[in-house]
Computed example of a mutant assay.
Amino acid sequence: MSIATPQDRRLTGPAEFTCTAREFIEAADGDLICYWNCLPREDPLPAVLRDGGTPLWDRAGRVRIIYPTGALDVPRVAADAAWQQQRGAQVGLSSGLPPGAMLLTAAGAIVTTRPEGSDYAVIRDPAVLRALDALAELLWQRSDIVRAEPERLPTEAERQLLRMLVEGLTDQAVARRLGMSDRTVRRVVAQLMERLSAVSRFEAGVRAVERGWI
């Protein structure tokens, strides 16, 4: 399946994408639906979904996210999807997604048809938004809904380690305090970062606080 849409304007980069996406998320409190069928991890849409905050997760409407079939075999994507479900989002998998990605709200849409991501266009035309809404509903109806798994909470040792990450302690300092080897600390930190869908130790600490783990 492929799509072609007229556009109001093109976005010049991740910063403008994030600003526009947040504008749309905050401007309309109804349903939000998106699909993501892009290759690069640095595409800005997953970051917007991770960092959407209260306007995204406490909205009155549904939040539905469709990933390509097989995407949950990638640990980072699986961690993102699980975290989204814990926030109340519905997640689906589809083998028939168009290339690229879309975020759609009643206020507007951001769309790319490039499988490598980027090159997003902003859509505000009501007629086009209605057509995109119909497409999104069709994609959702044809997707396989993913059942939410109970969140695996950290152990007390992992909580202590996360608190030390927030404090900025080194692996060596953490190892000494917890009576672990440096190698074990590095392994546990890597596992926690993957579970939290974090790209840095600092981000892991922030996300742990957001989830109420520490």
Rank of each mutant, 00 (worst) to 15 (best):
G70Q: 09
R186S: 15
R22G: 04
R62I: 06
M1H: 05
A157C: 02
P115Y: 10
C34G: 06
S197L: 06
I145Y: 02
M102R: 01
G205E: 01
A47M: 08
S181F: 11
P75L: 11
V146N: 07
A106M: 06
I66S: 04
A208M: 08
S197H: 11
R59A: 11
L178S: 08
P99F: 02
A89Y: 05
V188Y: 05
P68N: 01
G61T: 14
E210D: 15
L56I: 13
E194W: 04
A204T: 00
T12E: 13
A148T: 01
A60S: 15
A47P: 08
G92E: 03
L104N: 00
T112D: 05
L56M: 15
I123C: 03
A173K: 15
T155V: 05
Q191A: 07
C19A: 14
T5S: 03
V188T: 12
G205C: 02
D171Q: 11
I65C: 05
A136F: 08
D58E: 14
I214T: 02
G61R: 10
M164F: 03
E194P: 07
Q160C: 12
D43I: 15
Q86T: 08
R211N: 11
R187Q: 15
P99M: 06
P99Y: 04
A79V: 01
A71V: 00
V188C: 03
V122C: 06
Q85S: 11
R124G: 01
V48D: 07
R10G: 07
V166F: 05
V91Y: 02
V166W: 04
D73Y: 12
S118W: 10
R130F: 03
A81S: 05
D171P: 13
V185T: 10
E23Q: 11
V122E: 03
R10I: 06
D80H: 02
R41W: 10
A28D: 13
E23W: 11
Q7S: 09
D182E: 11
C34T: 10
L72R: 10
M193H: 00
N37E: 10
R50N: 09
A15Q: 09
T69M: 05
P154L: 02
P75N: 08
A15H: 02
I65P: 00
V48R: 06
G179T: 13
R10T: 04
P55Y: 13
L162F: 00
P75D: 13
A131S: 15
P150R: 13
W140G: 04
Q7R: 07
P55N: 12
E158Y: 02
M102E: 14
L169H: 13
A136Y: 05
A101C: 10
V111Y: 08
G70W: 07
R152C: 08
A28Q: 02
R62S: 12
A81M: 05
I110M: 06
W36L: 06
I110G: 00
L104E: 03
Y67R: 09
L161W: 03
E23S: 13
G96T: 12
